[in-house]
């Protein structure tokens, strides 16, 4: 059976959820071979094996943290040479897409980004993408070279599928370009204790209607009652009420959770682009004419300062 390379996104050995989703998709096409790089690479093996990795190729070097993107491209290229895979799958993060693009160019391959589903096909893997602010769905494939495909979080379920997960060390020679862009400082984000926005099963977002940074506390309280991530519309971020890393929409994150709750968000195209593929959509807005209500499964026309706290209380009561 053909092997499929899966690039592992991990933090010091802790594998992030989108990588496990990639393993589910990779198993539809062939046998997943994971590539884990940098500090803690070998520590990823147990988790990856549980989810279907037949092999885990690892390489630790300071270059992965000290220089931008290129060392990882060099390593994936080495892994490609060693394995000759049927496809290369990479999580669709900002960095993941850059790594995948440069790899594709080196391999003389086509690239598909931001897939939301992947199936095996007669002429190679078929990727589903959601385009034009999620108003169209396309099916595409790579027609030249080894398909390089980046996949968005929440595109597949995480499945247990125990496999050997044999750790092999990958031999990597860094290219002349590897040390071109130096990372001279790194400030880790403060943990909020909430789930990662793009990975969360539930997202609670606030917009212009929240009307002030201090009022985001009620959005956070609702999110915490549901174990959800907090999102914000561009209007709220531009006003400085909430950090840009939480922005949902065209220039922020695109999310596809089981449940999306929009509070005080009108639903402009820029916002819809980032949340339209959510499974269930709920909105609370004062304006009955707000376009967000065209998308909802359930909507409440009302003042979010009444409805959101009442909802939070009710959820807490029900959860006991």
């Amino acid at each position: 059976m053909a092997e499929v390379l899966v690039y592992v996104d991990h933090v010091d050995g802790a594998v992030r959820k989108p990588t496990l989703e990639l393993l589910t998709l990779a198993r539809r096409i062939g046998e997943p071979v994971a590539v884990a790089l940098g500090n803690g690479a070998a520590d990823t093996a147990a988790t990856l094996a549980e989810h279907g990795a037949v092999k885990v190729l690892t390489h630790e070097a300071a270059e992965y943290a000290d220089y931008l993107v290129v060392p990882k491209v060099d390593a994936l290229q080495a892994a490609h040479e060693a394995v000759s895979p049927a496809a290369v799958l990479v999580p669709s993060s900002a960095e993941g897409k850059e790594i995948a693009a440069r790899l594709a160019l080196r391999l003389g391959s086509g690239i598909i980004t931001d897939a939301v589903d992947l199936e095996a096909g007669d002429e190679g893997p078929v990727a589903t993408q959601s385009v034009f602010a999620a108003s169209f769905t396309t099916k595409s494939r790579v027609s030249t070279g080894t398909p390089v495909i980046t996949v968005k979080p929440n595109s597949a379920a995480v499945e247990a599928a125990p496999a050997a997960g044999a750790v092999e060390s990958l031999s990597v020679t860094f290219s002349a370009q590897a040390t071109g862009t130096k990372v001279t400082g790194r400030t880790p984000r403060e943990s909020t204790g909430r789930p990662e926005l793009t990975e969360a099963a539930i997202v609670v977002s606030g917009g212009r209607g929240v009307n002030g940074a201090e009022n985001f506390a009620i959005i956070e309280a609702l999110a915490d009652s549901l174990g959800a991530a907090v999102g914000a519309s561009r209007a709220a971020v531009d006003a400085g009420w909430y950090p840009h890393t939480n922005q949902v929409g065209q220039t922020g994150k695109s999310v596809s959770p089981q449940l999306y709750i929009a509070s005080g968000i009108s639903g402009a195209i820029q916002h819809r682009a980032g949340m339209q593929t959510s499974k269930t959509i709920v909105a609370i807005n004062k304006d009955a004419e707000a376009p967000i209500f065209d998308l909802v499964d359930y909507g409440v026309v009302g003042d979010l300062f009444d409805v959101v706290p009442a909802l939070t209380e009710e959820i807490k009561t029900r959860k006991g």
């Binding site: 594709a104 003389g108 391959s109 086509g110 690239i111 598909i112 078929v126 959601s130 385009v131 999620a134 108003s135 169209f136 769905t137 396309t138 099916k139 595409s140 494939r141 790579v142 027609s143 030249t144 070279g145 339209q276 959509i281 009955a288 209500f293 065209d294 998308l295 909802v296 499964d297 359930y298 909507g299 409440v300 026309v301 009302g302 003042d303 009444d306 409805v307």
Partner: peptide, 24 residues
């Protein structure tokens, strides 16, 4: 092109949801 789009379909409109007015 190194990639081929096999088909593009308009996303079906979401079925109309329930909308209620908050009366408390």
């Amino acid at each position: 092109a190194y990639t081929t789009v096999d088909n593009a379909a308009e996303r079906p409109a979401r079925t109309a949801g329930t909308i209620v007015k908050d009366e408390g």
